[in-house]
Each structure stands twice: as structure tokens, then as C-alpha cells.
Design a protein around this nucleic acid. Structure first.
Lengths: 135, 135
DNA sequence: GTAGCTGCAAACTCTTTGCAACTCT
DNA sequence: AGAGTTGCAAAGAGTTTGCAGCTAC
């Protein structure tokens, strides 16, 4: 039983065949799949799965904070398993998503919110760039 | 002739009545109106304006970099006139949008992109928080 | 047994677009 | 005059939902 499945069980979700497939797809994804991507990959395992179930499952997982829903200005959502905290740099030429982490940034955003009189609950940071020539 | 109108003229756009109204609405907005908001405010001036025109005009202005299109995880877009650079903190209780600017942050994001081998073209930063009790 | 889950298709929301009429320049 | 712009209504994309049947617990 995967760690994602364990967390679902703990949340009281029924472990159906469809959910198992979707969790497997998410657990194996090293990218940031769209709903359509998850659907396509799930269908390779179980052809009868419907996209409505994929939408419903991803919404549930999002509510449980097991996945993060991204909207990279593309007009649709992408998902990733919520494990370690990080941010994204999107390559404007290739669409490739690079993950990064930066402690200074984490501290800074906390401070900014506090200075504005707010407790920071959530945030989004995305960088959009083009590859520099290697020097 | 407003500064926004001047920039439109320079870009070769025809200055129609509808566009003048939309630019006025944008120029006077101190918030971050949705398309529907802009449409409603424009209709108060010219009742015959259509929402298709509002969509088309905002898209044009976005291409010309005269406005910034935001997607604050709400399922629709909000716009603001592109004047000074700043970021947003969204109050999770009230939906209020607080603007802020931070030089340290600007420098840091440039550095992060550079360290990853990218030239920074664009970025998004949004903080989501709840008001701290005054101390 | 039953609360929860599923597939299907229809509905919904936001946005875009084809078209014929109109209007700035 | 003519390219650009408009309103309308229809179409599109992504997402959600009502329903009847099914399934994990």
C-alpha cells in the first residue's frame, strides 16, 4: 500500500480500483501532469475510467492537501504530489518546468506578509524565463 | 486625452467610443476588476457595449502590455493597469488585494533564475494570508 | 446493507470567434 | 474608401454535476 493510499485511507476515502490507478499515476509522475495527462495515463491501466472520476479524485486530493493544483497561465490545471515545498521556473521556449527551493526566499515572504500585518497562509511563486547561453 | 488613450493611438488602435469607455473604467479603477466588473462599469456609461468587446479590448491591451492579466485561483481573470511593478497579497477572509513592493525580492528572483541558467522574462508572486490581530 | 463512488451525458462558466453591419481615420 | 471594430449568437475549452447503477466497507 503506497503512502498516498495510506493517507487516503486515513482520510476515510474508499479505495476503489479507479482511485488506486490514479494514485499510482500521480506517484509515478515526475512532471506536472494536466487532468488530461492523468486521464490518459490512467486509461492505459484501466481503459474504462472516466475523466469525471479523474476530475473528482484530483479535487478530493487537493482538498486533502495531498496534491497541489497549479495554473501556469495555460488555461487549465496541472497537478503534482505535495511532498517537499518548492517553486517552479517555466521555460518559455520549451514549456519545461524546473523546480527550485530557496531558503532566503521563504524567509523573505514570511517577513513581507508579517510587515503588511498578515499571517502567511499560502503563496505562489513562478518564474518564467529563457535559457541563458552557457558561458 | 488620457495617457492610456495616447498609448493606444501610438499602437495604431482606432479610438472608438467603446474603447474610450473601457479605458476610462480601467484608469479609474483602484482595484483589480474582472472582465465582468469592467463590463458592468462600462455599461453604466454606455449601455450598448457588449461583453465581447470588453474581452477583445482587454486582450489587446494585454498584448500591448498596457494592462496585466491576473489569475488569482478564482477561475477567471482580473486586470489592472500596468504602471509600477508590484506584487499582491490576497486576504483570504475578505478577498481584498493588498499591493506591495520589495527590492530585496526583486533582486533575489533575478539571482535564482540566473543560478538556474535562465534569463528571467516574467514572474508571478502572490501571497495569500489572514490578517494578524493588531498588537 | 448502505454510504460513497462511478460512468455517462448534460450543464455550466469563462472565453473566443464568424459574420454582417458599422465607424474611425 | 477601406481597414478595423462592433454586437450578436454560436461555438469552444475546461470543469462540474444529476442520476441511476455499482462497490468497498
Amino acid at each position: 500500500m503506497s503512502s498516498l493510499e495510506q493517507r487516503c485511507a486515513k482520510a476515510g476515502l474508499k479505495m476503489t480500483g479507479q482511485r488506486r490507478v490514479i494514485l499510482k499515476v500521480l506517484g509515478e509522475a515526475s512532471d506536472h501532469p494536466s487532468v488530461e495527462d492523468v486521464y490518459d495515463r490512467a486509461k492505459e491501466v484501466d481503459d474504462s475510467i472516466s475523466i469525471a472520476t479523474v476530475y473528482r479524485t484530483l479535487s478530493l486530493l487537493d482538498e486533502l492537501d495531498m496534491v497541489i493544483r497549479h495554473e501556469f497561465q495555460e488555461g487549465y490545471s496541472r497537478y503534482e504530489v505535495n511532498d517537499e515545498h518548492h517553486h517552479h521556473l517555466i521555460d518559455l521556449d520549451t514549456g519545461k518546468v524546473v523546480e527550485f527551493q530557496n531558503d532566503e526566499l521563504e524567509a523573505l515572504k514570511e517577513k513581507i506578509a508579517r510587515d503588511l500585518g498578515y499571517e502567511l497562509i499560502d503563496h505562489r511563486l513562478e518564474l518564467y524565463g529563457k535559457k541563458l547561453p552557457k558561458s
